[in-house]
Design a binder for these strands. Structure first.
Length: 904
RNA sequence: GGGCGAUUAGCUCAGUUGGUUAGAGUGCCUGCUUGACAUGCAGGAGGUCAGUGGUUCAAGUCCACUAUCGCCCACCA
C-alpha cells in the first residue's frame, strides 16, 4: 500500500466516533452493489436449481402493516433476522431476506376512515371504488414509511423482491387458494354464530378476539309458566338477549324440572310463548339449572336450537343496536337496552335476584369494542384436514420451535383447531372470488380465479360478486410461497422455497405461524421453514408491553438519532434473554454506543501503529509469535468458535456477549496494552520482526472482531474495515472467520492466566496501599521453579501494567522486611514498603483474607473426611478436592506468616 | 377450569449433562487528564440462588409441594 493510501486510511478514523456520520452513506452503497440481492440464472435446469437450493438461505420477513411505523418490537425482530442473514451471507450462502408489507385489512381501513372523518366524509359517501382509491393513495403516500425505517436500521433486505400482500401476484395466489380449497370442499359458506365487532361492522376470527376476565353480574329472571301462577327462573349475563329467546332448556335428568319439559312459558316483555325443552348441554348445578335459549346470539344456544329445530330470532342489528324484532326496545344500543330490560323486569317483579359473577368477555383485537356473538352468513375454512399434516410436521420435528416450549402451545391449538371464519365485511382486502347468478330462479354460485362473463349454468350475464373481502391472514398465510411467484413454478420458488428460518413474536403463532405451516403443507407439499424462533416481547421498565396505545414505546428513529442504529441493534440483542421478555430502557443503548466507540478507538490505535505496513501482504512465515500473540490468537479462536456456535443455536445475546467480552476485555484491555511497547518505534528498532508480528496480529484479530461484529453492527464495522488494510470490497460479503485448530493454545492461555493474576495482585496491593499510579515499585515474588521462570521471562511485559521497576523473582526469595503481601496461585508476592504500609490495616486485611480462605478450606476438609464422598464420587472430583485442600492449606499458612511478620 | 413461564448482586440477566471460591453488564464507592478511547483506565463493596420438604457423597442445577408475579388457552348460561 502506498504512503498516501496509508495516511488517507488513518485520517478516516482520525476523528471521534460519530454514528450519524458513519450510518449516513453505507446503506445506499450496499444496495447499489447488489449485496442483498441473490442472483439466479434466468435459464435454470434442475441440476443447477438443486445446487443453488443447497446454498440458499431464506428468511421471509413478517410483513409489517402498511399503516405501521417502526416500534421497538420491530427493531428486535428485524435486528435478529438481519444478524442471521448477514452471518449466513458471510458464510457464503445464497442469502435472501425477502421484504414486504401487509395490507392489514381492518387496521388500514380504520386509519383511512379516520382520516376521512377529519375531512367530514365517510366511506359510504365515496362508495366502494372511491374509497378504495383513497386507500391506495394513502398507501402510496405513507406505506413506505416503515420500509424506510427498516433501511435506517440497516436491514439487509432484498428490495428488488419486495412484496405487498395486495400485489397482483399475491392476489392471484389468494384466489387460486380459495378456489382450490372450495373445490376440495374445505371452503364453505353458511349461517353460523361468529364473533361480530359492532364498531368495525365485520365478522372476526376466534383469534381476533381477546378474552378478558371481568367482574360482572348474573341476573336471575322469572319466566311465567303459561296457565299457572308459577315461574321458571333462568340466569343470564346478557339479559337483553332474552328478547330473542325461543325456548328454555333444562337438564334431561334434572328432577326439579322434569315435569315442566314440554310445558309453555310466556317470555316476559315480548309476550311470546316458548317451550321448555330438555338438553344435555345444561349443567343442573350452574345457576338455576334452567337456560334461556337464544340461538341467534350465543353459539351454544345456536347448537341447542339446531338440535331442537328452533328458529333463531335476530334481535340485534350489526351496529349493536336492537333490531325491529326487539319489540319496544328496537333502536336502543345493546347496553342501553340491557339497562332498560332490567328496569322493566324489575318493575314487573320478574327479577328474582342479582349476583356478582366472574365472566370472560371478548373484545375486538383492533378496536377493543366488546364483541357480540352474532348469527350471520359467512365463509369458513374447514381446518381439521389442513391441521393434520401440520401436527405431523411438529411431531416429526420437521418444524422445530426455539425455545422448544412453544411447540406445546402450537400443538394445543392445532389439535383443538376450529373452522376459520375468513369473510370480512370490509372493503379493503382481497375480494372473495365468488359470483352469484342473479337470473331469476338460477341461484348458481360460481367460484373461480378469474371473473366469469356468464353464468356457468344458465349462461345469464347478470352476475354479482360477493361483497365481502378475505381476512388479512388469508393472504399472509401464503407469504412464504406467494412472494416467490406461486402458483407459477418460478426460479425463485424452486430455489428459495422452503425458507430456512422464521423469526417472529409468539403472539402470532396462531394467526400466522401455524397457518403458514398448514398452507405450506397443503399447497407446496412441504413446510415453509424448518425452524421458528420466537423472539422476546419488548416491555418498558415497569414491565408493561410496549405498545402504541399505551404510548410507552420510544420512537426507535429518535433512539437511532441519539445513539446510532448500530448501538440500538447491538443493545437490543445484547439484552434479549433467550425465551424471556425483554425489558428495555432507552438509556441501555449506551452499552452499544460505548462499545462502538471502543471498537472505533481500538481501530484508530492499530491503524496509527501500522504506519505504512500492509499486514495483508505479510505471510505467516514472516511472523515470530510471542506468548502474548499466541494467547490472543487462541482466545480469538475461542471467540470465533463460541460466537458461531451461539448463532447456530439462536442464542443471540450470548453471541453478542461473546464478541463484546473478547473485544473489550481481552483484546483491548490486555492485548493492546501488552503489545504497545513492542510495536512502538523504539521497539521496532530493537526487534523489527517482533514489532511487525505485533502489528500484524493486532490487525488480524481486529479484523476478525469486525467480521464477528458485523451482523450486529453493520455500519460501524464496514466503516472501520474500509479504513484499515483489508482485502475485498465490502465486509458485508467478506468471509466469516473460521477458527483453526492450530490456533488453540492451552499452554499460552495457562501462562497468560498466571501473569494476569500476578498483575492483578500487584495492582490490588497498590490500590490497598493508596499508591499513586505514577509511582513505580519494586516487587518480590517467591514461586516454584516453573512459575519463577515464566515470570522472569515476561517481566518486561508486566512491568508497565503493574508499574514495577524492580523485580526479585526466585524460589529462594525472602520477605523484604516490612511489606504488603498477597498469595497468588501459591506464590507469595511482596511489595516492600517500609514506611508506606499502615501495619494495622495490612494485618487486618491479611486476617480477613485468611478467614475467607479458611472457610473454603473447612468445607473441603469436611468433604474429604466423608467416607461416602471418597468412595462414591468420581475419582477426578476427589483428586481435585485433595489438590484444592493442599493449595488452601498452603495459602492460609502463607497468609498467617505474612500477618505474623508484620507483628515483629 | 386447564396450561406455560419467572423468582440468582440495587437493576437487567447468564449459570450447558448435579462437582473448584455462583458470573456478566449496569448502578454504587475509591483512585487516575498513563500519547486509542473520561463513550475511558485501575481497584473495591454488594448474593442464607423465593420458601419448605425430598433424592444424592454432593443441589442455584433433579423431584414434590407452597407463595408471589406475568402470559396463554377454555362455548358453564
Amino acid at each position: 500500500m502506498s504512503e498516501s493510501a496509508a495516511s488517507e486510511r488513518t485520517s478516516a478514523l482520525d476523528h471521534p466516533y460519530d454514528p450519524a456520520e458513519v450510518e449516513s452513506h453505507w446503506y445506499r452503497h450496499w444496495v447499489e452493489k447488489g449485496y442483498f440481492t441473490p442472483q439466479l440464472p434466468s435459464a435454470l435446469d434442475d441440476a443447477t436449481a438443486a445446487e443453488l437450493r443447497k446454498k440458499a438461505f431464506t428468511i421471509f420477513i413478517p410483513p409489517p402493516n402498511v399503516t405501521g411505523s417502526l416500534t421497538m418490537g420491530h427493531v428486535l425482530v428485524q435486528s435478529l433476522q438481519d444478524v442471521v442473514i448477514r452471518w449466513r451471507r458471510k458464510e457464503g450462502d445464497l442469502a435472501l431476506w425477502l421484504p414486504g408489507t401487509d395490507h392489514a385489512g381492518i387496521a388500514t381501513q380504520n386509519v383511512v376512515e379516520r382520516m376521512l372523518a377529519e375531512r367530514g366524509r365517510t366511506r359510504h359517501e365515496l362508495g366502494r371504488d372511491g374509497f378504495l382509491k383513497e386507500v391506495w393513495q394513502w398507501k402510496e403516500k405513507y406505506g413506505g414509511l416503515i420500509t424506510e425505517q427498516e433501511k435506517r436500521l440497516g436491514c439487509s433486505l432484498d428490495w428488488t423482491r419486495e412484496r405487498f400482500t395486495m400485489d397482483e401476484g399475491l392476489s392471484r395466489a389468494v384466489n387460486e387458494v380459495f378456489v382450490r380449497l372450495y373445490r376440495k370442499g374445505l371452503v364453505y359458506r353458511g349461517h353460523y354464530i361468529v364473533n361480530w365487532c359492532p364498531r368495525c361492522l365485520t365478522a372476526l376470527s376466534d383469534e381476533e378476539v381477546n378474552h378478558e376476565e371481568r367482574e360482572g353480574q348474573l341476573w336471575h329472571i322469572k319466566y311465567p309458566i303459561k296457565g299457572t301462577e308459577k315461574f321458571l327462573t333462568v340466569a343470564t349475563t346478557r339479559p337483553e338477549t332474552m328478547l330473542g329467546d325461543v325456548a328454555v332448556a333444562v337438564a334431561p335428568k334434572d328432577r326439579r324440572y322434569s315435569k315442566l319439559v314440554g310445558k309453555t312459558l310466556v317470555l316476559p316483555l315480548m309476550r311470546r310463548e316458548i317451550p321448555v325443552i330438555a338438553d344435555e348441554y345444561v349443567d343442573p348445578k350452574f345457576g338455576t339449572g334452567a337456560v334461556k335459549v337464544t340461538p341467534a346470539h350465543d353459539p351454544n344456544d345456536f347448537a341447542i336450537g339446531q338440535r331442537h329445530g328452533l328458529e333463531p330470532i335476530v334481535v340485534m342489528n350489526p351496529d349493536g343496536t336492537m333490531s325491529d324484532k326487539a319489540g319496544d326496545f328496537a333502536g336502543l344500543d345493546r347496553f342501553a337496552a340491557r339497562k332498560r330490560v332490567l328496569e322493566r323486569l324489575s318493575d314487573l317483579g320478574l327479577l328474582a335476584r342479582t349476583e356478582t359473577h366472574k365472566l370472560s368477555i371478548g373484545t375486538c383485537d383492533r378496536c377493543d369494542t366488546i364483541v357480540e356473538p352474532y348469527l350471520s352468513l359467512q365463509w369458513f375454512v374447514r381446518m381439521k384436514p389442513l391441521a393434520e399434516p401440520a401436527i405431523e410436521a411438529a411431531k416429526r420435528k420437521r418444524v422445530k420451535f426455539f425455545p422448544p416450549r412453544w411447540t406445546k402451545v402450537y400443538m394445543h391449538w392445532m389439535t383443538h383447531i376450529r373452522d376459520w371464519c375468513i369473510s370480512r365485511q370490509l372493503w379493503w382486502g382481497h375480494r372473495i372470488p365468488v359470483w352469484y347468478c342473479e337470473a331469476p330462479g338460477c341461484n348458481e354460485i360460481i367460484v373461480d380465479t378469474t371473473p366469469p362473463t356468464e353464468c356457468t349454468k344458465c349462461h345469464g350475464g347478470k352476475l354479482r360478486q360477493d361483497e365481502d373481502v378475505l381476512d388479512t391472514w388469508f393472504s399472509s398465510w401464503l407469504w412464504p410461497f406467494s412472494t416467490l411467484g406461486w402458483p407459477e413454478r418460478t426460479n425463485d420458488l424452486r430455489v428459495f422455497y422452503p425458507g430456512s428460518l422464521l423469526v417472529t413474536g409468539p403472539d402470532i403463532i396462531f394467526f400466522w405461524v401455524a397457518r403458514m405451516i398448514m398452507a405450506g403443507d397443503e399447497f407446496m407439499g412441504e413446510e415453509p421453514f424448518p425452524h421458528v424462533y420466537l423472539n422476546s416481547i419488548v416491555r418498558d421498565a415497569q414491565g408493561r408491553k410496549m405498545s402504541k396505545s399505551l404510548g410507552n414505546s420510544p420512537d426507535p428513529i429518535e433512539i437511532m438519532n441519539r445513539y446510532g442504529a448500530d448501538a440500538l441493534r447491538f443493545t437490543t440483542i445484547f439484552l434479549t434473554p433467550t425465551g424471556q421478555d425483554l425489558i428495555f430502557d432507552e438509556k441501555r443503548c449506551e452499552t452499544g454506543k460505548f462499545f462502538a466507540n471502543k471498537i472505533w478507538n481500538a481501530a484508530k490505535l492499530v491503524s496509527m501503529r501500522l504506519g505504512d505496513l500492509d499486514p495483508t501482504t505479510v505471510r505467516d512465515s514472516q511472523l515470530t509469535l510471542t506468548l502474548t500473540d499466541r494467547w490472543i490468537v487462541s482466545r480469538y479462536a475461542r471467540c470465533v468458535r463460541d460466537t458461531t456456535r451461539y448463532l447456530k443455536t439462536y442464542r443471540f445475546n450470548d453471541a453478542a456477549n461473546a464478541v463484546y467480552r473478547f473485544a473489550w476485555h481481552e483484546y483491548c484491555d490486555w492485548y493492546l496494552e501488552l503489545v504497545k511497547p513492542r510495536w512502538s518505534d523504539e521497539g521496532a528498532v530493537g526487534d523489527p520482526a517482533g514489532a511487525r508480528t505485533a502489528r500484524v496480529i493486532a490487525h488480524r484479530v481486529l479484523e476478525g472482531i469486525l467480521h464477528l461484529l458485523h451482523p450486529f453492527m453493520p455500519f460501524l464495522t464496514e466503516e472501520v474495515w474500509q479504513a484499515i488494510p483489508h482485502q475485498g470490497e465490502s465486509i458485508t460479503v467478506a468471509p466469516w472467520p473460521k477458527a483453526k485448530k492450530a490456533w488453540f493454545d492451552a499452554d499460552a492461555e495457562a501462562d497468560m492466566a498466571l501473569l494476569r493474576d500476578l498483575v492483578v495482585a500487584v495492582r490490588n496491593l497498590r490500590a490497598e496501599m493508596n499508591l499513586p499510579p505514577a509511582k513505580m515499585v519494586p516487587v518480590v515474588v517467591r514461586g516454584d521453579e516453573k512459575q519463577s521462570e515464566k515470570i522472569r521471562a515476561n517481566r518486561d511485559l508486566l512491568a508497565p501494567l503493574a508499574r514495577v521497576d524492580q523485580w526479585t523473582i526466585s524460589p529462594q526469595a525472602t520477605r523484604p522486611g516490612v511489606a504488603a503481601s498477597a498469595v497468588v496461585r501459591g506464590m507469595e508476592v511482596w511489595l516492600p514498603l517500609a514506611g508506606l504500609v499502615d501495619l494495622d490495616a495490612e494485618r487486618m486485611r491479611l486476617a480477613r483474607e485468611a478467614d475467607r480462605v479458611l472457610g473454603d478450606l473447612e468445607g473441603t476438609r469436611r468433604k474429604l473426611m466423608n467416607q461416602d464422598f471418597l468412595t462414591k464420587a468420581k475419582k477426578e472430583v476427589v483428586e481435585r478436592e485433595r489438590a484444592k485442600l493442599a493449595q488452601l492449606e498452603e495459602t492460609v499458612a502463607k497468609l498467617k506468616r505474612a500477618e505474623e511478620a508484620l507483628r515483629a
